[in-house]
Computed example of a mutant assay.
Amino acid sequence: METENASSSLVRQPGEGPRRWFYGGGVHTWKARQEETAGAFLLFEDEMALNKVTPLHTHPDSDETLYVLAGEILVNLAGTEHRIAAGGLAMAPRGLPHAFKVLQEGTRILCLQTPGSAQSFYDGASEPLSNSDDPNGSGLVDFSRIRASGQAHGGIEIIGPPPFA
């Protein structure tokens, strides 16, 4: 059972939490939203398809930590590439240019942003999914919508195309 109260505690069981199709590709299952943590952090699970890439970007006001639950990603941190397998972690401090590419089918990551000030960006760059929706969402990747949400709400700056060969 899901319990939500920013002034006390938050419990979400496996599979619980609002689900959204992110226009960068992938389904976000929200484990902790900004309003639930009094702005301290955001936490979501991201299920992504093989070969998904992100553009080179920064988060000007938050640190981003990626913990790989399953699969493998290639992370570019300020021009240096690192392969991160299940159980591994990568952290991009605020303002550091970074991007990642999914290297295995079935890849899932936990994404932690501190502080949790970018919720409006993520909401503007995604659409809600019901539990009966296809787990791959609408499948439409639209970086222009991500850029527009970042310009309208902050939280991200797109600084270039994906840096991967």
Results as ranks from 00 to 15, higher is better:
Pro162Gly: 09
Glu105Trp: 14
Asp63Pro: 06
Ser8Arg: 14
Pro60Ser: 02
Thr58Gly: 03
Phe22Ile: 09
Ala99Gly: 10
Glu72Val: 08
Leu43Cys: 06
Gly150Ser: 09
Ser9Leu: 13
Leu10Trp: 03
His57Cys: 04
Pro60Asn: 12
Asp134Met: 10
Glu4Lys: 03
Gly39Ile: 07
Glu157Ala: 07
His57Asn: 03
Ile156Asp: 07
Glu157Gly: 04
Glu16Asn: 07
Ala118Ile: 10
Ser126Ile: 06
Arg145Ser: 12
His153Phe: 11
Ile159Ala: 01
Val11Asn: 10
Arg147His: 12
Ala165Glu: 11
Leu42Gly: 01
Val11Arg: 03
Thr65Ala: 15
Ala92Asn: 00
Gly160Arg: 00
Gly87Ala: 10
Asp133Phe: 15
Gly71His: 08
Leu50Ala: 14
Thr114Leu: 14
Gly150Asp: 00
Phe22Asp: 04
Asp46Lys: 02
Leu42Ile: 13
Leu129Ile: 06
Asn131Asp: 15
Thr54Ala: 00
Asp142Gln: 09
Pro97Met: 02
Glu47His: 13
Asn76Arg: 00
Gly26Asp: 02
Arg147Asn: 05
Leu69Phe: 01
Glu64Asn: 12
Thr3Cys: 04
Asn51Leu: 15
Trp21Gln: 01
Ser7Pro: 07
Arg20Gly: 01
Gln113Gly: 08
Asp133Leu: 09
Ser7Lys: 09
Met48Lys: 11
Ser144Thr: 14
Ala165Arg: 13
His153Val: 12
Ile84Cys: 03
Glu105Asp: 14
Thr58Ala: 09
Ala118Tyr: 01
Cys111Thr: 06
His59Thr: 05
Ala92Thr: 11
Ile146Val: 13
Ser8Val: 14
Leu56Thr: 13
Gly79Arg: 09
Leu43His: 02
Gln119Met: 06
Pro60Asp: 10
Arg94Trp: 03
Leu74Glu: 12
Ala38Cys: 13
Leu140Met: 14
Pro162Gln: 05
Trp21Gly: 01
